[in-house]
């Protein structure tokens, strides 16, 4: 398995948000500002790397019949650890992410990577796959968050950059605005990837 290929797949060609379109609930819910999207992405990346590595290590000892419960236990353990660490050391992020931090447990990107990749591949490539998918997710959430924050609040990463008389479009930072921005981004991204594929 080509490590480079695994990496590019996770970040771009098989991007969890823009290509696979999975994990939409946290994507829409926490991408209302750049820093929230970025933080959520990093938390999910940490969980993905951890769960992919452990599941890959256990893959020979895991009977097929109970693989799903084992995946869930491993994922839930990592999520809870990350939750406690974020609460202790990154309290503002913990408050901003709220319920969506523990809900990483049910983020289907993580279970999907466990089932589709880590259970069948070596520990090293599973770690790379976790990192790549996590970064792909982080990239998508940060782009989404930056655009929504820019138009919805006139700032990026908390720094005001729009001109003084700019009236923030509140709808963009609300859930309905999340759908609008995501739809436009999906369209742009698929133009880009479709061109790549036809070359």
């Amino acid at each position: 398995m080509n490590i480079r290929r695994v990496f590019m797949d996770g970040v771009i060609f098989n991007n969890p948000t823009f290509v696979q379109v999975i994990g939409m609930c946290p994507t829409l819910a926490v991408s209302n500002s750049a820093v929230n999207g970025f933080g959520m992405g990093l938390a999910a990346t940490a969980v993905l790397i951890g769960s992919n590595v452990v599941i890959s290590m256990l893959r020979k000892a895991t009977p097929d019949e109970i693989r799903i419960p084992i995946f869930i236990v491993v994922i839930a353990t990592f999520v809870t650890i990350i939750e406690m660490v974020v609460q202790a050391f990154f309290t503002p992020l913990y408050e901003a992410l709220g319920i969506f931090l523990p809900l990483i447990v049910v983020n289907c990107i993580i279970l999907a990577r466990a089932e589709a990749f880590a259970f069948k591949n070596s520990v090293l490539s599973s770690a790379v796959d976790g990192l790549a998918n996590g970064l792909g997710f982080t990239l998508a959430l940060t782009i989404l968050g930056t655009i929504r924050e820019l138009f919805g609040a006139g700032s990026v990463f908390g720094k005001t950059i729009m001109w003084g008389s700019f009236e923030p479009m509140s709808i963009i930072v609300q859930p309905s605005g999340g759908f609008l921005v995501l739809g436009i981004l999906l369209a742009i991204f698929s133009i880009f990837t479709a061109k790549k594929a036809s070359v």
Binding site: L58, I66, A76, T80, I81, M84, A88
Partner: peptide, 23 residues
Amino acid sequence: LGLILLIVTAVSAGALSVTNNFT
């Protein structure tokens, strides 16, 4: 199967209690 699950959950519980103690 039960034993394997038991081991996995026991190790997880151990990891959680260590983290909890620490944070």
